[in-house]
């Protein structure tokens, strides 16, 4: 106790670690400042882009899946050419630059879950993620723990998410280690017969499109179900 006088960080390692600025952050800041000085873009452009990127959620993906569940012809188009089919729900992978961002674009593939195969996504290199359809990746998706364990012990990791898959299903892990970006198309759950696309989209949560959860008719969104539990 006594020796901690004047040192508020003792015993609070988490805060100390998070306050450190990484080399990459410094590099980004330096390049950004240079670009602003050179007039390539303005600080306001940068702020607007950051807001645009961070505001993106998984709604585009939910819409894609709901539409595919409702319209077999669309589902076929989506599986055959993900980038083109996305345009039908207003998602253009080439935006905002006209060529996409180097880390997001260029090939988008939708992986269809079947009674035999369950797909799940990971990027062992860093954090490749289909941002135009799912928004920013969750924090856990970028952790070394998820990345190294999902390829090696996928069933244990899925169980930690509460997903226990039967022994006769093939768990297929997709390492997004190159140019392709993936999204999982979960199977339409029971109890959703006759639902509209809007109703269906509400149960297609982010995690079901990463492959760490399955959609359920009684779970409209992960955040929503948590709110109900707390209530």
């Amino acid at each position: 106790m006594g020796k901690q006088h004047g040192d508020h960080h003792d015993g609070h390692n988490t805060f100390e670690v998070s306050s450190k600025v990484s080399e990459f952050e410094i590099l980004e800041l330096a390049i950004r400042e240079l670009a602003i000085e050179k007039g390539i873009f303005s600080a306001d452009d940068h702020r607007k882009f950051a807001e645009w990127a961070e505001a993106k959620g998984p709604h585009g993906g939910s819409k894609l899946v709901a539409k595919a569940w409702s319209d077999p012809a669309f589902k076929q188009r989506l599986l055959e050419n993900g980038v083109e089919a996305c345009k039908e729900v207003g998602i253009d992978w080439l935006q905002p630059t006209g060529v996409g961002t180097p880390s997001d674009y260029t090939y988008f593939y939708v992986l269809e879950n079947t009674p035999q195969v369950h797909n799940v996504l990971v990027c062992t290199l860093c954090s490749c993620y289909p941002r135009p359809v799912l928004g920013m990746s969750p924090d856990w998706y970028r952790t070394p723990s998820y990345r190294r364990r999902m390829v090696r012990r996928p069933r244990e990791v899925l169980a930690e998410f509460g997903l226990h898959l039967p022994s006769d299903i093939e768990v297929r892990v997709h390492d997004s280690n190159q140019k392709s970006r993936f999204m999982v198309m979960p199977m339409r759950p029971e109890g959703t017969e006759g639902w509209s696309e809007e109703q269906l989209a509400r149960i297609v949560t982010r995690d079901t499109m990463i492959g760490v959860a399955l959609p359920r008719a009684d779970r409209t969104s992960d955040a929503g179900s948590l709110a109900e539990q707390v209530r």
Binding site: P154, R155, D168, E170, V171, R172, V173, H174, D175
Partner: peptide, 8 residues
């Protein structure tokens, strides 16, 4: 896991 599990 099980024998049929795969990775791409």
């Amino acid at each position: 896991g099980f024998a049929q599990d795969t990775l791409e």
